[in-house]
Design a protein around this nucleic acid. Structure first.
Length: 270
DNA sequence: CGTGTGCCCTGACAGC
DNA sequence: TGCTGTCAGGGCACAC
């Protein structure tokens, strides 16, 4: 379930093995995920040295000494398998260094791989339109307040809009709204400044806690079976329909908004 | 422009 | 043991 914390954990895990290493072999088993891989992917990456890794929203960035950056998105089911014991039919792209093997595995194939000049990364169309990072200082209550004035649509959907804030997914929007006492159904334009002042730290806290958890299981992430270290603490609302609220005597409900599930406590969240 | 819908693809799981 | 239906971390192309 790659949301921002999982991408962050993945990037950190890859960095431990890849930073400063030369890619000795690049194998493309299937040349497309959501869209075709860059035609020159193999040529561009074979022999390149990985100079560093980064994350932008839910994208992972793999910088090379050739001035080009490989950008991956894990979609719904993507993950990197380090030193897999055996190949898997969904290992679409495989990178080799002298000491390790890294397989980009994505069963549902909603992910992507792109190659962009590092100098113009910010102008890459998916990045150019993005709002601030949820963990960066540009995400403020004032930003969300200004961005939502006059919007009649529900706050839930606005928070999933990467142009408003870049990197939140369904799980953490649900969890952050619960923590800040805001109903996912609330009209975005009617959410008060005070409510946003609760929401911003709630977003930061839940993401930081999840990243810390991913970090604590980094050892597991690097296991040959490729298990990722997901947010292991119990969610307050996500996936908990019909179960008791952790804060009151109420029961968690599930509704569908924009074709996706929202879980919330009708008593705690107004 | 803002808003809502449907689709991309495969696998896991529940229920019969 | 199988079948069938439902649902899933995301993002984008469309239609109004």
């Amino acid at each position: 379930m790659p949301e921002l914390p999982e991408v962050e954990t993945t990037v950190r895990g890859l960095a431990r093995y890849l930073e400063g290493e030369r890619l000795t072999r690049v194998v493309v088993n299937r040349p497309d995920l959501r869209r075709p891989f860059p035609a020159d992917l193999m040529q561009a990456m074979t022999g390149a040295v990985v100079t560093g890794l980064d994350r932008r929203a839910k994208y992972g960035l793999l910088h090379t000494d050739r001035g080009r950056t490989l950008i991956f998105h894990l979609g719904m089911s993507g993950r990197w398998r380090i030193d897999p014991e055996r190949p898997d039919r969904h290992d679409h792209l495989v990178l080799h260094t002298d000491d390790h093997i890294f397989a980009l595995n994505d069963a549902r194939r909603f992910g992507s791989v792109d190659l962009v000049d590092r100098a113009i990364l910010d102008a890459w169309p998916p990045f150019a339109a993005m709002g601030p990072e949820p963990l960066g200082e540009l995400l403020t209550p004032g930003h969300l307040h200004a961005a939502t004035r006059g919007r009649k649509t529900a706050i839930k959907g606005v928070l999933l809009d990467q142009r408003i804030v870049a990197g939140l997914g369904n799980i953490y929007v649900c969890e952050a709204l619960f923590r800040s006492g805001i109903s996912p159904r609330r009209q975005a334009g009617k959410v008060s400044r005070a409510a946003f002042a609760r929401l911003v730290p709630a977003i930061r806290d839940v993401l930081h806690q999840s990243i810390a958890d991913g970090g604590s299981t980094l050892r597991d992430y690097a296991r040959p079976d490729g298990q990722l270290g997901y947010f292991a603490t119990r969610f307050d609302v996500y996936g908990r329909e019909g179960e008791p609220c952790h804060r009151c005597e109420g029961t968690i409900r599930r509704i569908v908004q924009g074709g996706r599930s929202s879980w919330f406590c009708p008593q705690c969240q107004k």
